[in-house]
Write a protein that binds this DNA or RNA. Sequence first.
DNA 1: CATGAATGAGTTTTCATTCAT
DNA 2: CATGAATGAAAACTCATTCAT
Lengths: 212, 212, 212, 212
Amino acid sequence: MGTVKTKRMPRAVREQQMLDAAVRTFGQRGYMAASMDEIAELAGVSKPLVYLYLNSKEDLFAACIRREAGALTEAVRAGVDRELPADRQLWDGLRAFFTYTAEHPDGWSVLHIQARTHGERFASEVAAMREDIVAFVTQLIVAAAREAHRDPDLGEGEVAGLAEALVGAAESLAAWANATPGVTARQAAATLMNFAWAGLGSLMEGRPWSPP
Amino acid sequence: MGTVKTKRMPRAVREQQMLDAAVRTFGQRGYMAASMDEIAELAGVSKPLVYLYLNSKEDLFAACIRREAGALTEAVRAGVDRELPADRQLWDGLRAFFTYTAEHPDGWSVLHIQARTHGERFASEVAAMREDIVAFVTQLIVAAAREAHRDPDLGEGEVAGLAEALVGAAESLAAWANATPGVTARQAAATLMNFAWAGLGSLMEGRPWSPP
Amino acid sequence: MGTVKTKRMPRAVREQQMLDAAVRTFGQRGYMAASMDEIAELAGVSKPLVYLYLNSKEDLFAACIRREAGALTEAVRAGVDRELPADRQLWDGLRAFFTYTAEHPDGWSVLHIQARTHGERFASEVAAMREDIVAFVTQLIVAAAREAHRDPDLGEGEVAGLAEALVGAAESLAAWANATPGVTARQAAATLMNFAWAGLGSLMEGRPWSPP
Amino acid sequence: MGTVKTKRMPRAVREQQMLDAAVRTFGQRGYMAASMDEIAELAGVSKPLVYLYLNSKEDLFAACIRREAGALTEAVRAGVDRELPADRQLWDGLRAFFTYTAEHPDGWSVLHIQARTHGERFASEVAAMREDIVAFVTQLIVAAAREAHRDPDLGEGEVAGLAEALVGAAESLAAWANATPGVTARQAAATLMNFAWAGLGSLMEGRPWSPP
DNA sequence: CATGAATGAGTTTTCATTCAT
DNA sequence: CATGAATGAAAACTCATTCAT
């Protein structure tokens, strides 16, 4: 499955091959356990070439994160039509998200797990992407309230907590769906929509659960 | 800051000191980056003693996982009274969970992050614990339906998905609460109850969201 | 000729063996070309032990410099009786110096050549030692003038330049004597005394050479 | 700061640019620490071209030594008029020498330090140059004796030692003068003439210092 | 029981050097 | 001629692990 070893390719192509190999290795082994030797071999090049193009293990990892974060963001963005109703947007976004994470489990692992556990430099790059997504979901919640002609009795902090919980639930479900054979992206999205949209609806109708 | 160095303690005590040091180190540095040197020093013992008692880095890590998983499970179990109504049980369990993760961030990091990224052996040990918890939540959902005299139109798979989503959301919120100053365990639990219980209620009243 | 490989020695002894090996290797190959592998092998230990005791190549080199500078200084000091007349002191000091450099060519190379060409950190350590020696020689020149009941028409700067030239000449002669078979320490010292003492005498008698 | 990159220059010119870059790099970084990459970049050419013209790092270094040794020799030769009295010749030669070393510190470093510490091949090339100079100084000493109508009671070995000491002192003073701001070539030369010529004079007048 | 002494195997990284175009 | 693409070999350094005392 490793990239076929061909000689003398343009730099841009080789760089992508290296990033492919790196994402796969980092995703499966983890940042620390991944060795530059393994990455180079999987990419079908010698180690010095990896260093020539990507500088260091850290830089290589950062490049992986940037590429994968961009790709995931782009996939979700492309799946959503901002003209449609809020629930439809959320549904489409979730499907795009679960589809992408299912098709790129290593990239998702790099973003979700590896990047968060190996230094501020990496964590902050992912945090930025995540904030984009949380902001998007927050907008949808507010839009949903408006569409339902409700004035949600929710403070800003509460909406943020909800968006955070929704995104967190999505992240967890992605891991679960990846690990559970037979669970499709569509099913994962439906489960979450059921759970979340109904809950939001109830909240907006003024029936929150309150602690005893 | 390490345990004070005292001579000749019973083996069980020494082992706990070692596990304390190991959990702290694994939690903060990650499994790969943690060095046996650092752990031994933090525990106030010599390295060979660590090997004598715990065998290897792998075994030491496994011991950490077992201890921490047990402690977390126990904390949640102790916080819940199985005689109370389902929503109260969930509320109490969530509070116990968020309290524990806030007070033992390194242990939680070991379970939630480290154990899942370093080989099947560790992942499966945590998965077992997690399944216990998901099973507990599943029971609560079913119990809630029964209490409400509803026949939930939910298949087993759907309930499982919901429980999974709930647990996943809790895990995400734990990380979020730990990282966000000013968010208490109680607040995290309230946010999630609001989100989840209302959603479950709507579902049971037969108003699920359905895909377009 | 390498140190015989014996097992389990006290740290202090091993450290000296390592320094011996390092001085020899640095002296013969130069700082950059010397490899830690070679040093460890010559010392009869494994590389990790070298790092355990001496930390890094830089620290190891610095330790060599410190040890060798101390030994050279001590050898010269031990060879001189500060109660004797100035010329006798200079003669004795030079003999001790040439003897030492002849017997420890690698140590001398480390101090004279290697330390000066690999970063301020090392250069300054040798510079400190050299300044000690230049100061000593300066004292002797002044003492010589006093003994001769002369008031040397020499400014401080000029005396410094002379001391510098004398020390420089000694350093060069050391290399020359080491490289020229059949030149003894005594001969090297005699050549320099002839050259220097007579010159100083002339200067003090007020017969300097003056530029055209 | 590197040579401006221009296309299609005659080989001889390109070679000089490469040697300029190499001398500078070797002089400042040292032989081992200098990288062919840096040299090629500083010369404004691609690495393969350096190899095409100069063959290898060793050959490149040797070419530097040859060029710099020739230039230094030539500078001294050009500064001296062989018709003038011996002391004047020495004075002029020293001034030329100190001037050259001050103006070409990297070249001087290559000759004085680098070449001597990286293998017999390079050392011997510098040694040859140095012997030329020592021979020249030896001639001057003999000529000085003749001019003074003295029959120096000095054996050949002694004269050689004196010349060696003088040259060595000059080399040391060159380093000292380069490192000490405010010391001009003229001052360095004056210091050494004072020291040396007076000493020689005394010797020839039959007042050598003799060991106790 | 406890530890100072020791290492094999691996890590990231760099460098002189060569082709194919 | 000139260069972008590529690498074999080795460097400094680290770490989990084990004896001998």
